[in-house]
Amino acid sequence: MGIDGHSRVRGYQWPTGGCLPFLIEVEGDRFIALQSNHTAFVADGFPYLTRIDGRPIQQWIDQAATRVPKGAPHWIRHRCVVRFLGRLDYWRKELGLPRKQTVRVELTDATGQHTRVVELPVAKAPFSYPIWPQQPSRLLNNNIGYLRLPTMEKEPSLKEITTWMPQFRNASGLIVDVRDNDGGDRAALLWLYSYLASPTAPPHVFTAAAYRLHVSRNENHLAGGPFMFREDDAQWSPAERLAIEGFKKRFKPEWELPVGQFSPWHYLALRSRVDASIYHFDKPVVVLMNAKCFSACDIFLAGLKGVKNVTLLGTPSGGGSGNSESFILGATPIRLTLSTMASFQANGRLFDGHGVQPDIVLEAEPAYYIGGSDRVLEKAVSLLKASQNK
């Protein structure tokens, strides 16, 4: 498959067989094995998974990657683990390993110098992965607001923003946690940006896209969910037109659109909304992100990157922005999903294959995945406390 993180095939059935009896989380190039309820590691004190049935974990990932669209390496690792690797017996067959009722797992401690091998009964079905962390929005100590957005779906994300931002009006800083948020709608970005941007700030243009030409797509194909319009669209204000001109002068796409196959460029301009409930939150803001941030969450992060007082903290996002459509293949139950647009960041890079880079890179520690210490959140609090003391 090409570079299209949204592409997938549905409507088929996996062969029956045993499944992995635990979950795997990915941090950098290491894999963390934990119980399905996210409360403990498979083996206490040995969080890192190195081998399954005697084969290095990377061999399993490489095999599963043959079923995953091309993309950023960190996104491929997550997609392999979350969607596919749980089908243990299927991948055993692909690797030439025999089926059996148990699975042999090799684990190491944090130093990588001490190992433990455990034999576990296989599961009857793959476990699902919860969105993590499972934390509510609230006011933290030191008068710091914590806004948790686990999804970009319009209704729940706007409800969270409109419920909590009024309560954070007098907070000394704000943490916006979008870790594991795999997208939905762009409305949350448009709304939250109105709180974070100065009312006098010029429009913020940060992305350009073009859709693949097709008889079913009119010139407003990107106006709905993506909120993107052509340069000559009548809805732009003079200030927005000026911002688009400035963006065009700087924008150098890494991939040239094939002539005659794509629409003219479309742009998204952020501006502060006029609403009685909106105020300007002019204190420091830290946004927490990770490799499971995807699609509309990629756009959310790109829209806030570089905004005054905003710092992105964590690991690069998954990388995907495609305005996807689904197609049924003939008289079969097979449904194919493909992107309809090529979407670029302000630096000229495609979202797919790269993701959004944080301003400060920091990986989570294994304890985070079992409800323990969260050093990314702790770092955010530390940054905001330091800003209070300046």
Score class of each variant (00 low, 15 high):
Pro126Glu: 00
Arg169Gly: 01
Val9Asp: 00
Leu34Gly: 04
Arg79Pro: 00
Val68Tyr: 00
Leu147Ser: 12
Ser194Pro: 06
Lys379Ala: 14
Ala276Ile: 15
Ser198Trp: 03
Lys292Asp: 13
Pro150Lys: 08
Leu336Tyr: 05
Asp4Trp: 01
Gln63Ile: 03
Ser36Phe: 14
Asn220His: 09
Leu270Thr: 02
Leu189Arg: 06
Arg349His: 09
Pro284Phe: 11
Ala367Ile: 02
Leu288Phe: 10
Glu254Asn: 06
Thr108His: 09
Val307Ile: 08
Val68Met: 05
Arg250Met: 09
Phe227Gln: 08
Ser382Lys: 06
Pro253Glu: 15
Phe41Asp: 07
Pro264Ala: 13
Gln135His: 12
Ser324Val: 08
Pro47Asp: 05
His354Glu: 11
Thr108Arg: 11
His114Ser: 11
Arg51Phe: 12
Asp177Val: 05
Lys249Trp: 09
Asn143Pro: 03
Val307Leu: 14
Asp53Met: 10
Thr162Lys: 15
Ser277Thr: 08
Gly353Asp: 04
Val361Ala: 13
Glu94Tyr: 15
Trp191Met: 14
Glu25Pro: 00
Arg241Ser: 04
Gly372Tyr: 13
Gly319Ala: 04
Arg375Lys: 09
Val307Gly: 02
Asp185Gly: 01
Gly353Tyr: 03
Arg55Ala: 10
Val307Ala: 05
Ile175Phe: 04
Arg8Ile: 08
Phe344Ala: 00
Ser382Pro: 02
Lys292Asn: 10
Cys19Lys: 03
Gly330Val: 13
Asp352Gly: 07
Val118Glu: 14
Pro126Asn: 02
Asp298Cys: 05
Ser295Cys: 08
Phe31Trp: 10
Gly112Met: 15
Arg51Gln: 13
Arg87Gly: 06
Thr207Lys: 12
Gln35Phe: 00
Tyr267Ile: 06
Val26Cys: 09
Thr111His: 14
Leu268Arg: 12
Lys390Gln: 11
Gly184Asp: 03
Phe46Val: 07
Ser373Ile: 12
Pro156Trp: 07
Ile61Asp: 07
Arg77Gly: 02
Leu338Cys: 03
Arg217Ala: 07
Gln167Phe: 06
Asn142Arg: 15
Ala239Ile: 13
Ile360Arg: 10
Arg335Thr: 11
Glu245Cys: 03
Phe251Ala: 01
Val176Lys: 02
Ser277Tyr: 04
Asp233Arg: 06
Leu383Trp: 04
Met289Ile: 12
Ile370Ser: 07
Leu88Thr: 06
Asn37Glu: 13
Val274Phe: 15
Gly54Pro: 03
Asp185Thr: 00
Pro366His: 14
Ile57Pro: 01
Trp91Pro: 02
Ala296Ser: 05
Gly184Pro: 02
Ala346Lys: 07
Val274His: 14
Asp232Leu: 12
Glu254Tyr: 03
Lys305Tyr: 09
Gln101Gly: 08
Pro21His: 04
Glu240Ile: 11
Phe31Cys: 07
Val178Pro: 02
Leu97Val: 08
Tyr267Val: 09
Asp298Tyr: 14
Ala302Lys: 01
Pro199Met: 10
Leu213Val: 15
Met1Leu: 12
His214Ile: 08
Thr311Gln: 07
Leu242Asp: 10
Pro166Glu: 05
Gly112His: 09
Trp14Pro: 15
Pro226Trp: 01
Ile360Met: 15
Arg375Ser: 12
Arg241Cys: 03
Val274Leu: 09
Pro47His: 04
Ser324Tyr: 13
Glu378Gln: 13
His221Trp: 09
Phe41Gly: 06
Asp352Glu: 11
